[in-house]
Computed example of a mutant assay.
Amino acid sequence: MTDVVNVPIVAELPPSYAHADDAGADLRAAEAVVLAPGDRALVATGVSIALPDGYAAFVVPRSGLAAKHGITVVNAPGTVDAGYRGEVKVTLLNTDRTEPFSVEIGDRIAQMIVMPVSRAVFVPVDELPSSERGAGGFGSTGVRG
């Protein structure tokens, strides 16, 4: 069974899950905007939430908008902290080079994933323990397997 967390919300168009086993709840636009090719816009959702301590919400792109129209969330994942009480807004970017994209009120523009988060205690040390990967990063494992 999936864990359930109650999240107090103020919203005319509350987020909703398309399927019972979805991780992300769809966020809908509360305003209409037109994104010209290469443009970005901060789009209102009309959603304000009160996450419990120990939780955060992450705003991520919708795969269908990305694949079909080149629409993504600029700062994905956008982080909503437990103490934030303002409106959740989504910074959309139109990556299409030629076609504008219209967002209408009620359109599903992003998804919000609510998750428990751990609080780290950063412990200063003189040296980190070794690992198989070591300091290898960006592209260090190559492209093909």
Rank of each mutant, 00 (worst) to 15 (best):
P61T: 00
R133I: 05
G106D: 00
A135N: 15
G139S: 04
A30W: 01
R97Y: 04
A23M: 13
N6C: 01
G64E: 07
R28I: 13
S130Q: 14
M115A: 15
V33E: 00
T45S: 12
S102E: 01
V117P: 03
V43A: 06
P129L: 03
H19L: 09
V43E: 00
G24T: 02
G70M: 00
A56E: 14
V74D: 00
D22V: 13
Q111Y: 01
I71L: 11
I109W: 07
D126K: 15
K68V: 10
S140E: 09
Y84F: 15
G86Y: 09
M1R: 10
A18P: 11
P129M: 03
T45I: 04
R40F: 11
A56L: 09
V10M: 15
D81Y: 05
P37S: 01
G106T: 03
T141K: 11
K89S: 04
A30L: 15
G136Y: 14
L13A: 12
G145F: 10
D53A: 15
L13Y: 09
A56C: 07
L92A: 09
P77W: 09
N94C: 01
V59E: 05
P8I: 10
I109V: 06
H69D: 11
V7K: 05
G142N: 03
H69E: 05
K68I: 04
G142P: 03
F58G: 10
D3H: 06
V47Y: 02
A41G: 00
G70C: 01
T72F: 08
E104S: 15
A76H: 12
T141S: 06
F101E: 04
R85M: 04
D22Y: 10
I113G: 02
G134T: 00
R108H: 05
P52S: 01
V73Y: 08
R85H: 06
V103N: 05
G78M: 02
E12M: 10
I9R: 03
M1K: 07
